[in-house]
Computed example of a mutant assay.
Amino acid sequence: MATISDVARAAGVSISTVSYALSGKRTITASTRARIEDAIRELDYQPHAGARMLAGATTNILALSAPIHTDGHLPTHMRFVTAVVDTARRYDYDVLLLATDDDVSGIRRVAASSLVDGVVAMGVKAHDERVEIVKRAALPAAFIGVSGEHGDGVACVDLDFERAGRLAITTLADAGHRTVGVVGHPPTYLERGTGFVQRFNAGLEAEAAARGIRIDVVSPTLARGDAERAFDDLLDASPEMTAVLFHCNEPVVEAVLRRIRERGLEVPTDLSAFAACASYDTSHLAVPLSSIPLPLDQMCRIAVESALRQVRGVDALGVELIPPVAEDRGSVARPRR
Rank of each mutant, 00 (worst) to 15 (best):
S5G: 08
S5N: 03
A8Q: 06
A8I: 03
A10C: 11
A10W: 13
A11S: 13
V13W: 08
S14M: 05
I15T: 12
T17V: 10
V18P: 11
A21S: 15
L22N: 08
G24N: 11
T29K: 15
T29P: 09
T32G: 11
T32A: 13
A34D: 10
I36P: 10
D38P: 00
A39T: 05
D44T: 10
D44G: 14
Y45V: 07
P47D: 04
P47S: 08
A51N: 09
A55F: 11
A63V: 01
D71H: 06
D71Y: 14
P75L: 12
P75K: 10
T76N: 13
F80D: 08
F80P: 02
V81Q: 04
A83L: 15
T87D: 13
D101P: 12
D102R: 01
V104H: 05
S105I: 02
G106V: 00
L115P: 03
D117W: 04
G118V: 01
V119T: 09
V124I: 12
V124F: 07
R130E: 09
V134M: 04
L139P: 07
G148V: 06
G148N: 13
E149I: 06
D160N: 10
L167T: 05
L167W: 03
I169M: 08
T170F: 02
T171F: 05
L172F: 06
L172K: 04
A173V: 05
H177A: 00
T179Q: 10
V180P: 04
G181L: 04
P187I: 00
P187R: 01
T188R: 08
L190P: 03
T194A: 12
F196T: 10
Q198L: 14
N201D: 14
A202S: 15
L204N: 09
E205T: 14
E205K: 10
A206I: 03
E207W: 00
E207S: 12
A210P: 02
A210E: 13
A210N: 01
R211P: 02
G212D: 01
R214G: 07
R214N: 10
D216E: 12
V217S: 09
P220M: 01
P220V: 00
L222S: 14
R224W: 07
G225R: 07
D226M: 00
D226Y: 11
D226L: 03
E228K: 06
R229P: 01
F231Y: 15
F231D: 09
L234I: 00
L235S: 09
P239L: 13
E240V: 06
M241E: 05
F246D: 06
C248F: 00
E250P: 06
V256P: 11
R263E: 09
G264Y: 14
G264R: 04
L265F: 09
E266G: 15
V267H: 10
P268L: 06
S272H: 05
A273F: 11
F274G: 05
A276Q: 11
A278S: 15
Y280I: 03
Y280M: 15
T282G: 04
A286Y: 06
V287W: 03
V287I: 14
S290G: 04
I292A: 09
D297T: 11
M299I: 10
C300S: 14
I302W: 01
I302Y: 08
E305Y: 02
A307R: 00
R312Y: 12
G313N: 02
G313I: 01
V319P: 11
E320V: 12
R329E: 04
S331N: 05
S331R: 02
A333E: 06
A333Y: 03
R336G: 12
